[in-house]
Computed example of a mutant assay.
Amino acid sequence: MLQFSANLSLLYNEYPLPQRFAAAKAGGFDAVEIQFPYSQSAAELRQLLDGNGLRLVLFNVDADTLLQGGEGLAAVPEKRQDFRRAVDQALRYAELLQPCAINVLPGRCLNADRLAEYRATFLENLDYAARAFAGQGIVTVFEAVNSFDMPGFILDSSAQMLQVLHDLNHPHLRLQYDIYHMSRMGEDCAEFLRCHIDRIGHIQFADCPGRAQPGSGSVDFPVLFQIIRDSAYSGWTGAEYRPGAATADSLAWLKSYAASGSGTV
């Protein structure tokens, strides 16, 4: 199944966050995702979703200063309690927002001598999160991020993600597969989707290089979207790109799939 969601942290950022919900609906989306929703109360977000006929399908556990160059929360041994508090916060939001999945960002290790310790801590914390979110029937996902945009990220390949799945073997744990990040690492996204889509809980995409809308780079989206549509995948495929101009002007790809009946928005 191919059903698209709009990532409101990157799309429509020409507007304040509360206005992005109406813009996404007007743009043709019925579902949205937010990287970190915690600047708004869960009640405010619920009202925005209901008022615009939208579903929130994904958000992240708080990751501290990861996006500002820090290490994040999920793998730092000294921040175990901070991570658990972040999981509790996500659970409170999930009670009202009812996402399909919650993403745990592995984070960085800025001291290579401690990488094994950080990875062990991440496994411990990811298992904790998966158990906590399973209590609400929510799938926990995690992702690899390319090492060019975010040096030191502790997972930067599909093989590493599969190893984590194998090591934890948790029934409510899936991959968040980001086509942009894995394309940036030179991986064959089409082959991975064909072989492992049953292990994926959420998909995100942007073209590569540049992380802009489909058609701006070298990713063969018609092939990838066809693989997703023809598979048994029932999750969402999130548009998480940086539009080259106004978001509304970047949606030719979406209009094409909606017009052809190839995708659901």
Rank of each mutant, 00 (worst) to 15 (best):
F59Y: 09
A86G: 03
N111T: 01
A101D: 12
E71C: 00
D64Y: 08
L67H: 07
Y93L: 09
K79D: 00
V57M: 09
G135A: 14
D62F: 12
G137I: 02
L56W: 08
L49D: 12
L123T: 02
A75N: 10
L56E: 09
Q68M: 15
N60G: 04
G53E: 06
R85C: 13
A63I: 02
M150T: 15
A94R: 00
P77I: 12
A90I: 06
E117G: 04
I138K: 07
V139Y: 08
A120M: 07
E44P: 05
G69R: 13
V145Q: 01
V145P: 03
L97C: 15
L54N: 06
Q68R: 12
R80C: 10
F59T: 05
Q89M: 05
R46K: 10
L56V: 06
E117K: 09
E44N: 11
L67V: 04
I102L: 10
L91R: 07
I154E: 10
D62V: 04
A144F: 11
G72P: 00
R55I: 14
L123K: 06
A90S: 11
A129G: 01
A130V: 06
R131H: 08
L48N: 05
D88V: 10
P151H: 11
L105S: 09
L96M: 15
A130N: 09
D149A: 07
L67I: 11
R85T: 12
Y128F: 10
Q136R: 07
F142K: 04
R119C: 03
D149N: 04
T65G: 06
P77N: 13
A74R: 04
F153G: 04
A144M: 11
A132M: 02
A134N: 15
D127A: 13
M150I: 15
C100W: 04
A144R: 06
D127K: 08
D64N: 11
K79Q: 05
Q47M: 14
G69E: 13
A112K: 13
A116R: 09
P77C: 13
P77D: 14
L123R: 07
R114Q: 07
T140L: 02
V104E: 00
R46I: 07
N52C: 14
A116P: 01
L97G: 09
D127P: 03
D88E: 14
L54F: 11
T121S: 08
P99G: 04
A144T: 14
L58T: 05
A129T: 01
A75L: 03
V76P: 00
N111S: 03
L48Y: 05
F153Q: 08
R84H: 14
D82V: 00
R119A: 00
V87R: 01
P99K: 06
V57F: 07
D82Y: 00
G51Y: 10
Q98W: 02
F83L: 02
T65A: 07
F122G: 01
G51T: 06
L115P: 01
E78M: 06
L45F: 15
V76F: 00
V87Y: 04
